[in-house]
Every structure is written in C-alpha cells, then in structure tokens.
Amino acid sequence: MILGQKQLDKIDDILTANLIGSGVQSVMLIDTAGNVIASINNGNETVDLYSLAALAAANFGAMSCMAKIVGEDEFSLLFHKGEKENIYFCKVNEELLLVNIFNNQISLGFLRLKMSKVVEELVELLGL
C-alpha cells in the first residue's frame, strides 16, 4: 500500500472535520502491527502516542482472538469507559484501526455515528 502526501493530508482532514471538530480530544489511525499512520489532537492532549498505539493494536488483536473463540468473526468496536476519559477503538479494515480518546461531554451514540462516517470516507479514499 502506498499513500501519497495528498491522501495523508486528506486523512488528516477527515479525522479533523468529523472527530476533532465534534469534541474528540485525540484520534489516531494505526495499523494492526502498532505503527502510527496519522494522529491528530485538539491541542490539549499529551498522550504517549507510540505506547498507546502498541497497546491498542495488541488489545484489538487479543479481542479478535477472543471473538473467534466464542464463535464470532470479530468484535468490530471496543469501548473502554473511564471516570473522565474514554477510549473507543474501531476497525477500518483488516490492517487499519482508529483509536479515539474522548471525555464524557460526547455521547457514545454520537461518536459511533461520526466514526461510521469516518470509516466510510477512509474506505473510499484508500480504495479499501
């Protein structure tokens, strides 16, 4: 897979418009090996991106294995709720994942809506 500069810029635009614009603090596009492909935040978030990407990819991988054990193809989204911060993972395709950090001012339902739009746009952009 080769992405041009234009595509990378477009990815940034999609993530910014749909997610950061809606109040998500930080969003990251990673691959399932744990590499960071794109990451955007609202300027107030200082998370350790590379560590988060490594753990997110591993977590997603572990969940996929668990899904198979219970006879599911996959759990397509994962949500971890904290007191203030929440993490939401969502699969784009076999290789790519989206990881969002957001607080309780955003409802999960709203976020899910935005995320499915983002996935749609990414799939179209990348021809996945």
Binding site: I2, Q7, L8, D9, A33, N35, I37, E95
Partner: peptide
C-alpha cells in the same frame, strides 16, 4: 507520502511516512 512495505499479504511491516519523514520499524 506514506509507504507500507508489506507486499505479501501486508501484515504491517515497516512504515515510512514520507510526509512527516518518519520511519517506524519493529524489532
């Protein structure tokens, strides 16, 4: 520009981001 070197079934492999000029390799 972003180049994924995964050619055979593409399980990740090193990622070279030619836009931000970052290479990530996994050991």
């Amino acid at each position: 520009m972003y180049v994924g070197l995964g050619m055979s079934g593409g399980a990740g492999l090193a990622f070279i981001n030619l836009k931000d000029k970052v290479i990530q390799a996994k050991i």
